[in-house]
């Protein structure tokens, strides 16, 4: 099965996809593997691996700091591909990375390497749909799903274009801002999710700022997937892989009780 198909199959009618994030190479090269293992054990449906970049301009201080550390630890793209390969037979793995890292390897070579490492999808924060047309085509030819981002400021025309290009999921940025931990789901998030749904067939995952099981559950009532990054990286820093895994299990439990309010996925039995 192609990576993109595996990724789509992680989004099921009967449950919300839980998508925890880890920075490749943080807290250490070996430690990142342990974090990934903890996520899989806690019931992750997809694991998102951030490939560290020197200038991550969509990320807030928490994730930036993990990237800086990971680079100091010697993490690079090859390491992240290997890291992905360690999980890819159990859960679909998605890369979050900045375009220059792809560009430096060469787009086509990068896509071949990603596909053969078992990477299922790509989230590229600095490759908006305007610049992504050809990339999205090459990426889906290579069997790696393209997962574009949308923001509260995206117009309906842009959402349509996102709908056309999304071969994985649509990454819904819940607030105008950078990544980081926030207490509650921002008010505009639900409206954005509904707007995206009306324009795109791909599953919709909500991220940026989900910091508690309650916020995750709130998001899950509307979204097909919930992405959690900064909070988990904070926990890894404070309590290690085990602590992050334990917290993620609580989120998984909170999500299992969620009744989907509307959309194509009906409520749980």
């Amino acid at each position: 099965m192609k990576g993109s198909e595996r990724l789509r199959s992680a989004f099921r009618d009967d449950r919300v996809a839980l998508i925890p994030y880890l920075t490749g190479g943080y807290p250490t090269l070996e430690g990142a593997r342990e974090v990934g293992e903890a996520y899989v054990e806690a019931g992750a449906d997809v694991v998102e691996i951030g490939v560290p970049f020197s200038d991550p301009l969509a990320d807030g201080p928490t994730i930036q700091a993990t990237a800086t550390r990971a680079l100091e630890n010697g993490a690079d793209l090859d390491y992240c591909l290997e890291l992905a390969g360690g999980f890819a037979d159990r859960v679909p793995v998605v890369f979050l990375l900045y375009f220059n890292v792809i560009f430096a390897r060469g787009v086509e070579k990068f896509l071949r390497d990603a596909a053969s490492a078992g990477v299922s999808g790509l989230v590229i924060p600095d490759l908006p749909v305007d610049e992504a047309g050809e990339f999205a085509r090459l990426s889906s030819d290579a069997g790696v799903a393209f997962c574009p981002l949308v923001a509260p400021t995206s117009t309906d025309e842009r959402l349509e274009r996102v709908g056309e290009l999304a071969t994985g999921f649509v990454y819904c940025v819940s607030v105008a801002g950078v990544t980081g931990v926030r207490d509650a789901l921002p008010p505009g998030a639900v409206e954005l999710l509904r707007r995206v749904r009306s324009k795109a067939e791909a599953p919709v995952a909500l991220g940026f700022g989900i910091g508690s099981p309650e916020a995750a559950a709130e998001a899950a009532a509307e979204a097909d997937g919930v992405i959690i990054g900064s909070k988990l990286m904070q926990l890894v820093g404070e309590r290690g892989a085990e602590g992050a895994g334990a917290w993620l299990r609580r989120v998984r439990e909170a999500l299992s009780g969620v009744v989907r309010s509307e959309g194509r996925y009906q409520e749980l039995a």
Partner: peptide, 24 residues
């Protein structure tokens, strides 16, 4: 890979490689 010649580019250079939030 890029042959685009449109506003926002100087030959092959330039473009708008930014987070979606900024496009607007």
């Amino acid at each position: 890979m890029r042959q685009k010649v449109e506003s926002g580019y100087f030959g092959a250079f330039g473009g708008r490689y930014v987070p979606e939030t900024l496009i607007h």
